[in-house]
Structures are given as C-alpha cells and as structure tokens.
C-alpha cells in the first residue's frame, strides 16, 4: 500500500509540474461553468435549481480528459525504459498500475472539489435535490474510474502516447455511443446486452439520484478489467519480447 501511494504521489506531482493539472482543472471548470450558467439549457433558462447541466457536460469532458491523463503513464515509461527501473525496485506490476490509477482519481477528485462552489451557489438560488447532486458526483467518479482503467490499458500496449490516447478514445466511443446505437437497432438478448454495455443509461440513473448496485458494478468492472489487462500486458515481458 505504501508503494502504491508513493507512486501515486509522484504521478500526481508530475501532473502539476507539467501544467496538465492546471489545464485540466481550468478547462473542466470553464466548460462546465459555461454550460451551467451561461449557455444552452443553463440554470437561468430552465429556471430550476439543478446540477443536471453540469453533469451532462462532465459526461463529455471526462471522456476526453481521462485518456489525456493516462496516455503517457505507461507508454512513456515503456518508451524511455524507466519501467525497467521502476519494476526492479521493491514494487509489483500491480502496485505500479494501481498507483497510477490512484493519481488519476486524485486529480479528478480535486477538479470536482473545485466545482463545489457551483453546487453551493445553485443551492443558494433555490431548492436543490441534494441527494441527486452527491449521486451525480459519485457517477462522475465511477465513470472516471472506468475511463482510467481503459486509458491505462491502452497506454500499456504502446510506446506512443498519441496512439494510447486515440485508442482510449476509440474504446470509450464504443461505450459512449456505439453500444447505445446498436442497442437501439436491435431487439432481444443482443439488444439487452448492448443496452447494458452503454454508459449513458448507467450514468443517467446515478446522476438522477438512483444508486443501483448494478450501475456501480458496471463501472467498477470496466475499470478492473482495464487494470487487469494492463497488468497482463506488462507481464508479457516474462514470456516473450
């Protein structure tokens, strides 16, 4: 556990050293603030004290931002060879991956903490469904965890950060759009499977305030699958080259 934390802190600092963290937080707050307060179905237009516009935007921003955070994590270590240095220390493959995963979640958490003033302001403007807001935040965290898992996996299979980024977007696109579209076009068992795989249903039900263990399981299993696949890719060095 100590090792995981040491690695997470290093990665976390690297986010701030390389400006990625500042850019992410600023763009995240700027985009979501713009759509919450100023444009489209914003709070004043709908006349409702609701965080729904905020969560609807976060749904998209996380889709782009998480792969941007994870893309360098293993790809760069593979490229420069620092992975060898890291794994010959007293750490296991899993600890390295979990440390990196944790650092992404920490940064997402920080970004979300900075968005709390939006919540407080809206709550001050009118009656708000507090339960739904906290569930919405939980939904973002869970979704981020799923994308981080995917991102770490794509970062593990290549030495090129851009490839890792695009591949993570591509896989994310399946969960975000393609499975949903397929589900709409199909009936029967296949339709149900695709509907289950689609992110939006799970995310929307959580951000409306309904916590269903199936939704939580859905996000956590994508995340875990990504992490285990990344570990399997790292372990490949033991069998072939």
């Amino acid at each position: 556990m100590k090792q995981i934390w040491t690695i997470a802190i290093r990665e976390f600092r690297a986010f701030f050293d390389s400006l990625i963290a500042y850019i992410l937080i600023m763009v995240f707050l700027g985009l979501s603030g713009f759509f919450t307060w100023l444009y489209g179905a914003d709070v004043f237009y709908t006349g409702q004290a609701s965080m729904q516009p905020f969560f609807a935007i976060a749904y998209w921003t996380m889709f782009f931002f998480i792969p941007a955070l994870t893309m360098k994590m293993l790809a760069e270590e593979n490229n420069t060879g620092t992975i060898e240095l890291l794994l010959t220390k007293d750490v296991s493959d899993m600890q390295v991956i979990l440390g990196k995963f944790l650092s992404v979640m920490l940064l997402v958490l920080i970004a979300l903490v900075f968005s709390l003033p939006y919540y407080f302001t809206i709550a001050w403007l009118g009656p708000i469904d507090h339960g739904a807001v906290w569930c919405g935040y939980l939904g973002i965290l869970l979704m981020s965890a799923a994308y981080a898992g995917i991102g770490l996996f794509t970062s593990s299979i290549t030495k090129n950060q851009i490839v890792a980024f695009l591949l993570a977007l591509l896989i994310g696109m399946f969960f975000l759009i393609i499975f949903g579209t397929l589900a709409g076009n199909m009936t029967g068992v296949l339709g149900k499977i695709f509907a289950y795989l689609d992110v939006s249903g799970h995310y929307q039900s959580i951000s409306r305030g309904v916590i269903d263990s199936r939704d939580i399981l859905y996000f956590l299993s994508i995340s875990a699958l990504g992490i285990f696949m990344a570990q399997a890719v790292l372990a490949k060095r033991n069998t072939t080259n």
Binding site: R10, A14, G81, L85
Partner: peptide, 19 residues
C-alpha cells in the same frame, strides 16, 4: 520482492524521469 530489496540496478542507457 526480497531480492529486489537487496539489489541496486543501473539499467542500460540509464533511464530516468527527466522532469
């Protein structure tokens, strides 16, 4: 894990975190 604790290793090309 026990061995890793007791070994100091300088890999080829000396990879380091440059930042």
């Amino acid at each position: 894990d026990e061995i890793k604790k007791r070994i100091g290793y300088l890999p080829e090309h000396n990879p380091l975190y440059k930042d």
